[in-house]
Design a protein around this nucleic acid. Structure first.
Length: 516
RNA sequence: GCUCCGUUCGUCUAGGGGUUAGGACGCAUCCCUUUCACGGAUGAAACACGGGUUCGAUUCCCGUACGGAGUACCA
């Protein structure tokens, strides 16, 4: 495939929605695969919705995920500026061409007049209540007003918009890379506003002009744009330009509400929204944004998010599930994107997270551990770096998130304050107590303590006393950690070290009463 | 309402005129294990419906139902 030029064009109206991330990802993958160019363009033509910091946030969020632009407002590029608000004169220049060739016209109607028109048409039970080929002849615009009056309005600074003059009886066809041929009758289209009264372009104008000027070859965007694609095709036609390829991505849908067993409590439909995500307890933004926790802060790894998102609507046709960004770049293809929306099931994302967590070495996990401990104000200076790495190694198999490493094993950092009652009731007795006491003495005298040796010693002693491992190991575990579950005891003792082990055994012997 | 789009296990999906309809997540059972987790094995679980076309349709065509998106001087 020839090198493509694609763009991700968000509005800086808030945090970057996870659906937007997937759109950016697909664009990025195609660009990198073809040796093409991935552009970030900021669509900030609605000044009323502009949010301070949103643009920086979007760039930073994509960067965290490993999606870096080749051309962007930050980086620049041969088609700068990449912020639409800075391109205002360009749109005005181009829309003039449309006026000149009769493809667009001035409209002077006030908001009240537009509302009146809608109500009139609704009352008349009209099928189409929009400003269109029929209704425009009743309105105040350069099609109905005499030329001199139009001129007068324009000169006097009377507010106006420029509207697209949708042609009569034309079938607009275009081929969508995902959906195939889409056809719409021009009669059903309305005369969209191209230039707003504040002189800013609407999405439709800005998008077409910029995509053409920036030599975009493939427009890959969400399905919510499919209904307006005919307008864009029309605009390309009117400008006398060839339109880029279109690919409209299926939507990401909200998941059903489920209980802990995965049974559906409530079936949900519709586009995933921030509200839904927050109500169901999973992030919607990559990074925390204005109090809404991000995937990063919730403990998701960027590789996992990328992998999960890549497979939400696309698949390579094989049974492979785990993909690095490099593999995705190699394997991605627009043809293999599905047509229907995908429900966003966070359980699968967690599974990916677990997979990627396990692939990391203890050393790679160390910063996550330290960060988590610091945040929770849990002291850890009693351990060397090697010991902390060993904790990561031993815990990562049973963790989904980095914080699980210490949350599932607090006993590494704090001596047990209570002991699992079930185990105590079942196995804490005269005999096992004796063994623990014996072990304590033995370890205390040991010069060359090791977890493995300690475990073996226990093994032998238990055998001598005619006890099974199943009777004595849980007792040792509960004495050492207070819990009944966790990693191999030899590993735990190794990390804890001789003194700590002896001390904890002593504490246990003192504080646990033998049940009657 | 109108326009456009869609529909394979609960979910993400593979497949495609003749298949025991495949995989993954989740769920269940068993094995491994001192335990939890990991791992392994097994299981329950799907072609929305109705008409065509055809020797044969889940696959192709047409309807219906259901779902979604759009319908702003928002993107």
């Amino acid at each position: 495939m020839k090198p493509v030029r694609v763009r991700f064009a968000p509005s800086p109206t808030g945090g970057l929605h996870i659906g937007g991330v997937r759109t950016a990802l697909y664009n990025y993958l195609l660009a990198k695969q073809t040796g093409g160019t991935f552009i970030i363009r900021i669509e900030d033509t609605d000044q009323t919705r502009y949010v301070e910091g949103a643009e920086e946030y979007i760039i930073e969020a994509l960067r965290w995920l490993g999606i870096e632009a080749d051309e962007s407002p930050e980086k620049g590029g041969k088609h700068a500026p990449y912020r639409q608000s800075e391109r205002k004169p360009i749109y005005q220049e181009y829309v003039k061409k449309l006026i000149e060739n009769g493809s667009a016209y001035y409209a002077f109607d006030t908001e009240e007049e537009l509302e009146a028109m809608r109500q009139r048409l609704e009352a008349a039970k009209a099928k189409n209540t929009s400003y269109n080929i029929v209704s425009r002849m009743q309105m105040k615009n350069s099609l109905t007003l005499p030329a001199d009056e139009v001129e007068k309005h324009l000169q006097s600074g009377h507010p106006y918009v420029i509207r697209l003059k949708v042609p009569a009886k034309q079938t607009i066809r275009f081929k969508d890379l995902i959906r195939g041929w889409v056809a719409v009758e021009s009669t059903t289209l309305d005369d969209k506003v191209l230039l707003k009264s504040d002189g800013m372009p609407t999405y439709h104008l800005a998008n077409v002009v910029d995509d053409h000027l920036m030599e975009i070859t493939h427009v890959i965007r969400g399905e919510e744009w499919l209904p307006s694609a005919p307008f864009h095709v029309l605009l390309y036609q009117m400008f006398g330009w060839e339109h880029p390829e279109f690919a409209h991505l299926p939507l990401i849908l909200k998941p059903d509400l489920k209980d802990s067993k995965g049974r559906i409590i409530q079936e949900n439909h519709g586009k995933l929204s921030k509200r839904d995500a927050e109500a169901m307890g999973f992030p919607i933004f990559p990074l925390t944004w204005q109090g809404s926790i991000g995937y990063r802060e919730a403990g998701y790894l960027p590789e996992a998010i990328i992998n999960f998102l890549a497979l939400l609507g696309w698949n390579p046709g094989t049974n492979q599930e785990i993909f690095s960004m490099q593999e995705l770049i190699q394997l991605f293809s627009v043809e293999r994107i599905g047509k229907s929306g995908s429900k966003f099931e966070i359980e699968k994302a967690k599974w990916f997270n677990q997979q990627y967590l396990r692939m990391k070495s203890g050393k790679e996990l160390l910063p996550y551990l330290i960060n988590g401990l610091q945040k929770a104000h849990i002291p850890y200076t009693q351990y060397t770096e090697e010991q902390l790495i060993a904790i990561c190694e031993v815990m990562k198999e049973r963790a989904t998130f980095p914080d699980d490493i210490w949350q599932e094993a607090r006993y590494f950092f704090e001596k047990p304050t209570s002991y699992d009652e079930t185990i105590i009731k079942q196995k804490w007795n005269q005999q096992t107590c004796q063994i623990i006491a014996w072990l304590k003495e033995k370890f205390a005298q040991e010069n060359d303590f090791s977890g493995q040796k300690a475990k073996e010693a226990l093994h032998q002693e238990a055998e001598k006393k005619g006890l099974k491992m199943g009777q004595v190991m849980p007792v040792l575990r509960v004495a050492l950690t207070g819990t009944s579950a966790g990693p191999d005891l030899a590993a735990i003792m190794q990390i804890l070290g001789k003194n700590e082990v002896v001390e904890r055994l002593e504490n246990a012997l003192k504080s646990i009463a033998i049940p009657q």
